[in-house]
C-alpha cells in the first residue's frame, strides 16, 4: 500500500523536473547507437553539429529548444574526453565500445520506467521529434529512471518512525 502511494507521488512530481531537459534524455534513450558513433566526432566538429541541431530544432515544436542545444554542445566535449579517459564509468553504459550493453540497458529501463511511472508515456511520445539531435550525454540517460529508483530506495530504507511510535492511529489521523 505504501509503495503504491509513493509511485503516484513520483508520477505527479515528475513532469516538473522532466520538463527542463526531457528532450535531451529521451533522445539519448532512443538513439543509443548513433549517439555513441557521433559522440567521438563531436568533440572535433562541434560547429557543424550545432548548426545541424538548429535546423532540427526548427522542426521541433518546443520553442525553447535553443537552450538545451547549447548545453549539449558544451557538455558533449567534456563527456567525450571523460569517457575516453575513464573507460568504464559508474553506470553499466560506461563502456564506450559495447553498443549492445547500451541497447539492453535502454530496453530494460524503458519498461521499468513505464511500470514505475504510468504517466511517463505521454512525454515519450512528445519527445520522439528530438531523436535527430545528436550529442551523447551518458550521465543524462535515464534520469527519470534513476530519480524514480533513488526516490523509492530512500522511501523504503527510511522506516516510518511516526507509525512506529504512534501505531496505526497515526495513519487514520493523516
Amino acid at each position: 500500500l505504501k509503495r503504491e502511494e509513493t509511485t503516484e507521488e513520483t508520477a505527479v512530481e515528475l513532469p516538473a523536473f522532466a520538463d527542463s531537459d526531457d528532450d535531451l534524455e529521451m533522445r539519448s534513450g532512443e538513439e543509443g547507437e548513433t549517439d555513441l558513433d557521433e559522440s567521438k566526432e563531436e568533440a572535433e566538429d562541434q560547429g557543424d553539429e550545432e548548426s545541424d541541431e538548429k535546423e532540427s530544432s526548427d522542426n521541433h515544436r518546443f520553442s525553447k529548444k535553443v537552450v538545451p542545444t547549447t548545453d549539449s554542445g558544451n557538455c558533449t566535449a567534456e563527456e567525450a574526453s571523460e569517457s575516453e579517459a575513464e573507460g568504464s564509468s559508474e553506470e553499466e553504459e560506461g563502456s564506450n565500445d559495447d553498443s549492445e550493453a547500451v541497447e539492453d540497458g535502454d530496453g530494460d529501463d524503458d519498461d521499468d520506467v513505464e511500470n514505475l511511472l504510468k504517466e511517463e508515456e505521454e512525454y515519450g511520445e512528445d519527445n520522439d521529434f528530438s531523436v535527430d539531435t545528436a550529442g551523447a550525454l551518458k550521465w543524462k540517460e535515464d534520469l527519470t529512471q534513476k530519480a524514480a529508483e533513488a526516490f523509492l530506495r530512500q522511501q523504503q530504507s527510511a522506516p516510518n518512525l511516526r507509525k512506529l511510535v504512534y501505531g496505526t492511529v497515526a495513519e487514520d489521523a493523516d
Binding site: A158, R162, L164, Y166, A170
Partner: peptide
C-alpha cells in the same frame, strides 16, 4: 530516539493530544 523518549511521545499524545512530525534525516 531512546525507548524512554518513544514512550514519552505516546504519553504526550494521550495527555496533550499532540503528535510530532517525525522525519529521518539520512
Amino acid at each position: 530516539l531512546s525507548p524512554y523518549t518513544i514512550e514519552f511521545l505516546r504519553h504526550l499524545r494521550s495527555f496533550f493530544q499532540i503528535m510530532f512530525k517525525i522525519e529521518t534525516k539520512p
